Measured scan of single mutants.
Amino acid sequence: HNLTITQGKLFFHYNPKLCLSEIHKMEEVSGTKGRQERNDIALKTNGDQASCENELLKFSYIRTSFDKILLRWEPYWPPDFRDLLGFMLFYKEAPYQNVTEFDGQDACGSNSWTVVDIDPPLRSNDPKSQNHPGWLMRGLKPWTQYAIFVKTLVTFSDERRTYGAKSDIIYVQTDATNPSVPLDPISVSNSSSQIILKWKPPSDPNGNITHYLVFWERQAEDSELFELDYCLKGLKLPSRTWSPPFESEDSQKHNQSEYEDSAGECCSCPKTDSQILKELEESSFRKTFEDYLHNVVFVPRKTSSGTGAEDPRPSRKRRSLGDVGNVTVAVPTVAAFPNTSSTSVPTSPEEHRPFEKVVNKESLVISGLRHFTGYRIELQACNQDTPEERCSVAAYVSARTMPEAKADDIVGPVTHEIFENNVVHLMWQEPKEPNGLIVLYEVSYRRYGDEELHLCVSRKHFALERGCRLRGLSPGNYSVRIRATSLAGNGSWTEPTYFYVTDYLDVPSNIA
């Protein structure tokens, strides 16, 4: 807008934040220059609390790290170098490059900038070799853009010569660093050979998330399962459950009422301010606690030095998902009996873990797994792929695949051998790939016309006998059925096997 004052003059007093240069501009645009008398524009009460600059400061050096910015700028000295009290560095987070010096300023003089007072450097006698002032900004957020400017702080001049310097606002972004852990990993099994893994992005990506790394490792069953005799009275049979499938998407929606109208769909109840505040506090606490764990609990591995020492970490090797089922080394339970199943799973520490690289999504279907087997899954978020990966501390989750139908069934015939004193040795093959492992066998036998009897055969007993022995049988026709019990439950009964026990007292003698 054009402003013209045809008559009258300007009068400025007691404006401590208004620089004289701005008042002189007002004289020019209003056409009143030359009308004012000496005392109409006070030299001592206008701009006496402001830094009124008329020179431009330029930054000469900028260096960044993930949490620091090192700045240096060209030296500046007023005509009387004693008038320079120091520099004021202003900075704040700036997602967009549209910041002005006066953003967030209120009537009390406060604003949204963080201000650092910096002492002037030592003055050199040689004007050509003056030290460049600077400042190291610490405690910054990774991968965050900051708006920065600097200006001088000078003393009051009796001659009211307006001098000083100020830089333009520059924008500097800190470097990326390792992201925080992925949030809320959930693993479920939808079949006997697959596990579905879902997660949420890290709360602090500290860069642009480029991919996720998912490692999985087959877990050995508890050692007590191999040692305890679950045929003993009072000892509860062990059981394991597989990871249940995901709930429906509708039930997972946030901010939804727990109660549904019987007449149909209901609208979600909005969260109160107290609920939102509580969630923010919980989120802040979780982030602080995660940072504490990362800094205190997890110790970084030592990389190899120039002395030739090897990095103890196993090298990563990509495998196809079809090879995942046989990740671990199978060892027989008892070496003397080769027909026992290889369900003991000690994992070799030198073995390469299978892994998958996930790009542009937060889910993965891990296939080719062994049925009813526990897996430990390790999830890392990465925001750099080359020249070397920059990934987060791992988040861990466990899951067990679903049982395989008929995996616990005894394959092959049940054979028998009759000894003296009416002892019958029953023999059968253990299931080759049971659900988890076989903890015991149930032997059901009966003599024709009598009630059915049951015998429990422990895992250890089966390994020693290759089956079991029935003792003290009365003469007669017998039928026997056997079924295995694994961590997933009972298998199917075998087809009945028949044998006849004679009275050993009636056996004919070869003595003449």
Rank of each mutant, 00 (worst) to 15 (best):
P300Y: 04
S363H: 05
Y259T: 13
I276V: 06
T272E: 12
D273Y: 13
N326F: 10
G476V: 01
T401E: 00
N477V: 02
P314F: 08
A394Q: 10
R390G: 13
Y448F: 13
Y396L: 11
A484Q: 02
R469P: 03
P496F: 10
Y441G: 01
N435I: 00
T494Y: 02
S363F: 13
K460H: 09
R218D: 08
H461T: 08
P496I: 04
L277Y: 03
S257T: 07
C266Q: 10
S203C: 15
W428Y: 02
S486T: 12
G234T: 09
G491H: 02
Y445I: 02
W242T: 08
N477G: 08
S283F: 14
N490T: 14
L369G: 02
R447I: 07
G325P: 08
E265P: 06
S458G: 06
R301G: 03
A463W: 11
K432C: 11
R301S: 04
C266F: 07
K432S: 14
T241A: 12
L437P: 04
R353Y: 12
F226H: 13
V414E: 01
E290K: 07
V296H: 09
K236F: 03
L213V: 13
P245V: 07
R318P: 05
T288K: 15
Q429R: 04
E249W: 08
T333A: 15
R376L: 07
P245R: 14
V331P: 14
Q219C: 04
I276A: 12
P354K: 05
I377E: 00
E378P: 02
V439N: 05
E452A: 12
E310L: 15
E290C: 03
N206D: 03
F215Q: 10
L228C: 15
I438K: 01
A399M: 13
D506S: 12
V424P: 02
Y478L: 00
L237E: 15
S509W: 07
N295K: 10
L232C: 14
S305D: 09
H371I: 09
R400K: 08
G325A: 15
T343W: 10
S251N: 09
R313C: 14
S239V: 04
S444V: 15
S363L: 07
D450K: 11
E451Q: 14
I482G: 00
G207W: 03
E356N: 13
K432Y: 08
T347M: 15
P346K: 11
V501Q: 03
G476K: 00
G467E: 02
P238Q: 12
T340E: 14
V411R: 15
G264M: 08
Y500F: 04
P387A: 07
K406A: 14
E310V: 03
S243M: 13
G322E: 07
H352F: 14
F499D: 00
T241N: 08
Y396P: 10
V334L: 10
V329Y: 11
V443E: 00
F372S: 06
G308K: 02
G368R: 08
N435M: 00
T386K: 09
W216R: 06
A263M: 11
Q252H: 07
P346T: 14
V214R: 00
R218N: 11
H371K: 03
S392M: 03
T272G: 07
E221S: 14
T401R: 00
Y445M: 08
L470Y: 01
T303N: 14
A463Q: 11
V397T: 04
Y504Q: 12
Y375D: 00
N435S: 03
R313A: 12
G449F: 10
Y500W: 13
N208D: 02
S363R: 05
H454Q: 14
V214G: 02
G374A: 04
A335L: 12
P312S: 12
S239I: 10
C266Y: 15
L225D: 06
C231Q: 02
I209P: 13
L455C: 13
S274V: 07
A463I: 08
L228N: 07
T347S: 12
T373D: 03
E260I: 07
F246I: 08
K432R: 07
A263V: 12
V397M: 13
R390L: 11
S458T: 13
S367P: 13
S474K: 08
E362W: 14
S486Y: 01
T373A: 05
V299W: 02
E362K: 07
E224W: 07
E430V: 07
E279T: 10
S257F: 14
A336T: 09
N360R: 13
D506C: 04
R319D: 07
T415K: 15
R481Q: 03
V424Q: 02
S262F: 15
H416C: 08
F226N: 11
Y448C: 09
S486I: 00
G322A: 14
R481A: 12
V423P: 02
E442M: 04
E281C: 06
L235N: 07
E420V: 06
P403M: 09
L225P: 07
G472V: 07
P332L: 08
S509L: 12
P314S: 11
C468K: 06
V443A: 03
S398D: 07
P508W: 03
L487C: 14
R319S: 11
S203G: 11
S398Y: 14
Y230S: 08
L364S: 13
S486R: 02
L228S: 12
L426I: 02
T328S: 15
L379W: 03
S257Q: 11
R459C: 12
T241S: 07
K432G: 04
L237S: 08
D506L: 13
V423R: 14
D250M: 12
L235P: 07
S268I: 10
N422I: 02
Q219F: 12
S251R: 10
G412T: 05
G489T: 10
A399E: 09
S305R: 08
F372W: 06
V443M: 06
M402T: 06
Y504K: 13
D503T: 07
P403K: 11
L505Y: 15
I482N: 00
T497A: 09
F215S: 09
G325L: 15
Y230N: 13
R218E: 10
V424I: 04
L470I: 12
Q380H: 13
D323W: 12
R466P: 04
H416K: 06
E495H: 15
T303L: 04
T502G: 10
A220T: 14
E221H: 15
H416Q: 10
S492R: 10
F372C: 08
T241Q: 11
L321V: 09
N206S: 06
C231I: 02
H371V: 05
R240V: 12
T303Q: 06
G467Q: 03
C266V: 08
N435E: 01
E217L: 11
W216E: 01
H461F: 13
Q252A: 08
V327F: 07
Y259A: 09
T303V: 06
L237R: 13
D273C: 06
P349Y: 09
G472F: 09
P354H: 13
F372D: 04
F337C: 08
G374N: 10
T272N: 10
C468L: 07
T386W: 15
T288D: 12
M427R: 11
N208F: 06
G374F: 14
E389D: 10
S367C: 09
K432F: 09
L455R: 08
I366V: 12
P496S: 08
H294Y: 06
W493A: 00
S398M: 08
R286L: 07
E282N: 02
T210Q: 05
T272I: 05
C269R: 11
G322H: 07
P431A: 10
W242G: 13
P354E: 13
C456V: 02
P403I: 10
H352Y: 07
T272P: 14
M427V: 09
S486E: 00
K406E: 15
E389G: 06
R400W: 10
E258T: 14
S283K: 05
G306C: 12
S474N: 11
G489C: 02
F337E: 11
E281D: 06
I377Q: 02
R471C: 11
L464H: 14
E362I: 12
T494A: 03
S458D: 04
E290P: 06
H461L: 11
N422G: 05
E221N: 04
L232P: 14
T502D: 03
N255V: 10
V334Q: 05
K287A: 06
S268N: 14
L369A: 03
F246W: 11
S363Q: 15
L237Q: 04
G325D: 15
T272L: 10
A263Q: 14
H294T: 08
T502A: 14
T333M: 15
Q384P: 07
E356Y: 10
S509N: 12
T502W: 04
